[in-house]
Amino acid sequence: MPTLVAKPPQGDDWMHEAKFDGYRSQIIIEAAGVRIFTRRGLDWTAKYRDLAEAAKGLNVQNAIIDGEVVVLNEAGLSDFAALRKAITRR
């Protein structure tokens, strides 16, 4: 889990990655179809229906894609409010 600190640690033993403001998720692609789960294991496929449809178009038989689901604003920054809006639309 990411931890907020004033300054990142230095040295060769550390690796850093940018933290985007979104939801950590896993896309599971298999013969039975596409499912998308939250970090806590909740099935959010219905909330991510556009993302699930896009994943169906990937040229793979099986895959697990693990990452942060985000919506970017015009400046290329993650926009959590836009993500919430996108996944709660009917």
Rank of each mutant, 00 (worst) to 15 (best):
R35H: 05
I29G: 00
P8E: 15
A86M: 06
K85T: 10
F20W: 09
F37W: 06
L58M: 12
E30N: 12
F20S: 03
A81P: 13
D66H: 00
Q10W: 07
L4N: 15
L77I: 09
V70C: 10
Q10E: 15
R24K: 14
D12C: 15
D79M: 07
A54T: 07
I65A: 02
S78R: 01
L72M: 12
L51V: 11
F37I: 06
D66E: 02
T88D: 09
I64T: 10
I87E: 07
D50T: 12
L72V: 01
T88E: 12
I64P: 02
D79W: 02
T45P: 06
V34P: 01
S78G: 06
V60S: 02
A18C: 15
F37P: 04
A31S: 08
L83D: 04
G57D: 10
M15V: 14
G67Y: 08
Y48P: 00
T45H: 09
P9K: 14
L58K: 05
A52C: 05
R84P: 08
I29V: 10
I29H: 02
R39E: 08
E53W: 00
V5G: 10
R35D: 06
A75H: 10
A46L: 12
W44L: 09
L83I: 11
P2N: 12
P9M: 09
V5A: 06
R35M: 02
R24Y: 11
A55K: 02
D12W: 11
S25G: 11
A75N: 13
D43L: 03
D50E: 15
F37L: 15
P9C: 14
D50P: 01
P2L: 11
R84W: 03
G67N: 04
L42S: 14
K56E: 13
R84K: 12
H16S: 15
V69D: 01
D13H: 08
W44T: 00
I36F: 07
R89A: 13
I36D: 03
V5T: 09
P8W: 02
K7G: 13
F80Y: 11
K85G: 07
R40E: 13
Q26M: 03
D43H: 11
P9W: 10
T88Q: 15
F80L: 13
M1W: 11
R24E: 14
A63F: 00
A63E: 08
T38R: 04
M15H: 13
G41T: 08
E53D: 14
I87C: 00
A55D: 12
R49V: 09
N59C: 03
A55R: 00
A31V: 06
G11A: 13
A52I: 05
D43Y: 01
